[in-house]
C-alpha cells in the first residue's frame, strides 16, 4: 500500500522528464531538427553506455572529479577559515565586506584569462577558476552562519564561565556548521559549472574537454553523452553534499 503510493509519487514527479525525453526523441526523428545537430536520447544513451563499456569515458569522469575535488577542497579550507574569521571579528567584517561583495560579483569565467596569464594553461589555472567559483558561497555562508548563532547561547555559556576559546569551539562552530555545509553544497554546484569552462581551454581530459572535442570531430552523440554525464555528475555531487549537509544539521528542528 505504502510502496504503491511511493511509486505513484515517483511516477508523478517524473512526468516532466518523460515528456521532455519524448519530445527530444521525436524532434530529430520527425525531422523538426536535423539529426546531425541533435541526436535523439536513445542514441545518446547507447553512446553513453558504449563509452562506459569500452572504457573511454571513465578517464574523463575521473579527471573532472579530481579537478572538482581539488578545487572544492581548497575552496572549503580557505573559505571556512576566512569565513569564520570574517564572521567572528566584527572589525574584519566591516573592513572587508565591500571588497568581498565586489569579488563575489566577478565571474570566475571572466577571470580565467587572467589566471592563464599568471599560471599558464596547466592545472594551476584550472584549479584557480574552480576555487574562485566555489570560494565565495562557502566563505559568505560560513560568516553568515557565525553571525547567526543565537546570542543567548553565547551568553549562556559565558555566564557559566566559558573562555572565548570554549565558546568558539562549542557554540559558534557547531552553531555555524549547518550553514557552512550549505555553502559547501552551493560551492559544489558552482564547481561543476566552472570545471566545464576550465576544461574547454588547454585541456586534454575531462568531460568539458570531451564535449568540445566530440563536437569538433563531429561525434555528436558522444557530445550529448558527455553533456548528460556532466549533468549526472552534478546531480551525484549535489546529492552527496546534500546528505553531508543534512547529517550536520540533524539537530535542527524541522
Amino acid at each position: 500500500m505504502r510502496t504503491g503510493k511511493h511509486i505513484k509519487n515517483i511516477l508523478f514527479r517524473s512526468i516532466g522528464l518523460f515528456v521532455f525525453l519524448i519530445l527530444w526523441e521525436l524532434a530529430p526523428r520527425l525531422g523538426w531538427v536535423r539529426e546531425i545537430f541533435l541526436s535523439p536520447p536513445s542514441v545518446v544513451i547507447t553512446a553513453l553506455i558504449e563509452m562506459l563499456l569500452d572504457g573511454s569515458l571513465m578517464p574523463h569522469i575521473v579527471a573532472s572529479l579530481l579537478r572538482i575535488f581539488r578545487g572544492l577542497l581548497l575552496a572549503a579550507s580557505v573559505g571556512v577559515i576566512m569565513g569564520l574569521l570574517f564572521g567572528y571579528f566584527r572589525r574584519v567584517n566591516q573592513t572587508l565586506d565591500l571588497l568581498f561583495q565586489f569579488f563575489r560579483q566577478i565571474s570566475a569565467f571572466a577571470l580565467f584569462p587572467v589566471f592563464i596569464l599568471f599560471f599558464g594553461l596547466g592545472e594551476v589555472s584550472k584549479t584557480a577558476i574552480i576555487f574562485w567559483a566555489s570560494l565565495w558561497p562557502i566563505l559568505l555562508n560560513t560568516s553568515a552562519g557565525v553571525r547567526d548563532v543565537e546570542p543567548v547561547l553565547i551568553r549562556s555559556v559565558k555566564s557559566m564561565g566559558a573562555s572565548k576559546m570554549y565558546t568558539f569551539l562549542n557554540v559558534i562552530l557547531p552553531g555555524a556548521t549547518p550553514q557552512i555545509f550549505t555553502g559547501i553544497r552551493l560551492g559544489g554546484s558552482y564547481c561543476v559549472m566552472a570545471v566545464v569552462a576550465a576544461e574547454m581551454i588547454g585541456a586534454t581530459s575531462g568531460l568539458g574537454y570531451l564535449v568540445l572535442y566530440s563536437q569538433q570531430i563531429f561525434k555528436v552523440p558522444q557530445m550529448y553523452a558527455a553533456i548528460v554525464a556532466l549533468a549526472l555528475l552534478g546531480i551525484a555531487l549535489n546529492g552527496m553534499l546534500g546528505l553531508l549537509e543534512r547529517f550536520f544539521s540533524s539537530w535542527r528542528k524541522l
Binding site: 543565537e150 543567548v152 547561547l153 551568553r155 549562556s156 555559556v157 562549542n170 557554540v171 557547531p174 552553531g175 556548521t177 539537530w251 535542527r252 528542528k253
Partner: peptide, 10 residues
Amino acid sequence: FQNYALLPWR
C-alpha cells in the same frame, strides 16, 4: 534564561 538556551546540537 527564559527561552532555555540549551545547545540544540547537544
